[in-house]
Design a protein around this nucleic acid. Sequence first.
DNA 1: TCAACTTTGTGCATCCGTTCACAAGGGGCT
DNA 2: AGCCCCTTGTGAACGGATGCACAAAGTTGA
Lengths: 255, 255
Amino acid sequence: MSTLEPVTSIPQATVARLPLYLRALHQVAEAGNPTVSSAGLAAAAGVNPAKVRKDLSYLGSYGMRGIGYDVATLTQQISASLGLERGWGVALVGVGRLGQALTNYAGFANRGFAIKAVFDSATDQVGTKVGPLTVQHVNELPQVVAAQKIAIGIIATPAEAAQDVCDQLIAAGVTSILNFAPCVLFVPKGVDLRKVDLAIELQILSYHEHHKTLPDRGTRLAPRRRRGSSVPSRRTRAISGALPTRTTRTKAVDE
Amino acid sequence: MSTLEPVTSIPQATVARLPLYLRALHQVAEAGNPTVSSAGLAAAAGVNPAKVRKDLSYLGSYGMRGIGYDVATLTQQISASLGLERGWGVALVGVGRLGQALTNYAGFANRGFAIKAVFDSATDQVGTKVGPLTVQHVNELPQVVAAQKIAIGIIATPAEAAQDVCDQLIAAGVTSILNFAPCVLFVPKGVDLRKVDLAIELQILSYHEHHKTLPDRGTRLAPRRRRGSSVPSRRTRAISGALPTRTTRTKAVDE
DNA sequence: TCAACTTTGTGCATCCGTTCACAAGGGGCT
DNA sequence: AGCCCCTTGTGAACGGATGCACAAAGTTGA
């Protein structure tokens, strides 16, 4: 493993989990544990311990054998890898109820994302305050975004307006977009796009719910153990007390 | 392929895309096309045509060779498979800004999800109206949810309250949960859980953004073509005009 | 009726992600 | 010092998902 450069193509799946570990690490830190084992972190993040170790190995970070990971160090390494140490300016378009909720969402500011400007096309919205920000007309978007060198955009408009807004954001220099509008967006190469469709999540739940109540056995697959061996009768005692043996975790479908 | 029973264990990845196809089909229908090819649908849904065909084949649905898929039929089949034909009652807990936005989100009602009750623990929220609904105290949750046989719950509380609320929902009979609180929830087997963490999405974007501006080449991998053969020089003319040749789609990371 | 064309359905190879299982490394107690 | 135990890091097997490429099937037009 290359120990010096932490920039060695981290798998997508791992990148998607790093924020999870970060969240878990904060819990562990608040519990007062200076170190945490992969098992402890796994429990707090709701994943498999081996996955944690493999994921963290991509960062080139060192755990201490026999001990675990230093919470402070690991927190800092993950933050660095995610690029959270510098703050990011964010522009949000669409100040409907969802847009307002997002603008005020504390979880963004906590992680270094500062919403710098909010836009809408409805003239009666323009000029009103959303939190500390004044809603600007979407016509202003190009200048404002370009002038402030904002790199991240959030789209919370109706689907009809989304592609248009998207194009404008990109023209103004935005290179990462989080889309809440329920539609497919097309972006040029070099621009990253992620989407959150609230209704889709419910529909996926609906599928599983539907097939639970179905006459014949639904699609559910039993957690079948692969090799007959090794049900670890001894429960690994984690350093942190954060092993919530509550109940089994569900197969939360993707991600 | 089993043509008669459409209930033959659909892969997770496919289930997650079905709502996407449904959305695309509505677009196509509004455009007035009675049929659509896999290529047309793929373009509208932002995925690969082969994937569309394979996905749809799991439903046991028939496309018509030489023609494509009948839009109305396919819409109905996907809806049926997702269990969207009957409506679902939904309980929402946590009437903060996000909770309010979700309660009023039109996309839910459109797809057959009716929010039947909203709860909060803040006494000054209780009794206020959110849309047509009156906020009830979370103490009422067990009775209300059980009495109305609500199967789906949405958690939009702060992280600290989430596990507690989750347990109560399950005790009251909910078997599918959509969690917006930024924390890991543990649920017993048989209960399905999906999560949406808004901050995590931004952090993933941050990672890519960060590595774009890095001195050496970032993590981006070129779209390298596998076999040297067959760049289809002829553009497949879809029946629907919905082939938006705009720009290349990004590698929207997961999902 | 027949030929050319369109589009589906799917076998297959490949890739990515997951998880097991184990060797190697360190810490601490005696 | 030496032993034991804990934990990391990773090789390797496995399974699921993706996407190509092609045969089968049906349509259209002459």
